[in-house]
Amino acid sequence: MSESLVSMKNVSYSYETTKALIDINFEIKKGAFIGLVGPNGGGKTTLIKLLLGLAKNQKGSIELFGTKINKFKDWNKIGFVSQKANSFNKGFPATVYEVVSMGLTAKVGYFKFLSKADRRQIETAVNQVGMLDYLHQNIGDLSGGQQQRVFIARSLVSNPELLILDEPTVGVDTENVRKFYDLLHNLNEKQNISLLLVTHDTGTMTHHATDIVCLNKTLHFHGKPTEFTNLSDRELSNIYGHPLNVVTHNH
């Protein structure tokens, strides 16, 4: 039985007027590559915010690496690439190196400076995402896909065991989306980083993920990719509230 990185039991969450999550039971095991899908407004980002402590747990229990979330301290074990990562201030004068170095800020801690080893670690992370040629370029001068890679490097630099990505391929062209999945695949297989990926590329993702979770306020499906592709159209449109064809959904 592999270690449980995330475990949610009977978790519900409401914003002032909307119920976003209802009675969610959900687990991420070490080594998993989970594709989280569902309609817009289905609560995917909310679920991630809860896991990251960005939204306060209202009901149910959340454990991270076997520790209750309110006692959890090892935040550098979790890397995060936000849905909003790409909406940063494009005029911000920061190089790729500087952006990736931010991923170490909290790990290095207050009153300490980056060491030589930290600097090497930054270059390694940039290399991992194939952006070493752009190390000293301003982030604002890169393409959307390249920026996305830099943000992944920022999350990788602290050597997380779990990487959470919220719709990272929005605005990235098909060719780069393919490369992007190769990168994720590599991180998962070779470096044993567990992944939670929110995406609408259901077609591409079913080739890479180990589990698919489908969320629309409640968990509608949790299973293997093959089971997901075998869902009938009627079952899918029940979840999404509108028809969706997984196999040809290939952007």
Partner: peptide
């Protein structure tokens, strides 16, 4: 100088900084 990296990190992306524990 002492808080350079924290200030820089927060200025660029507050949400990410908070998630990492700043």
């Amino acid at each position: 100088t002492l808080f350079y990296k924290e200030l820089f990190t927060l200025s660029f992306d507050e949400e990410h900084a908070v998630v990492t524990g700043i």
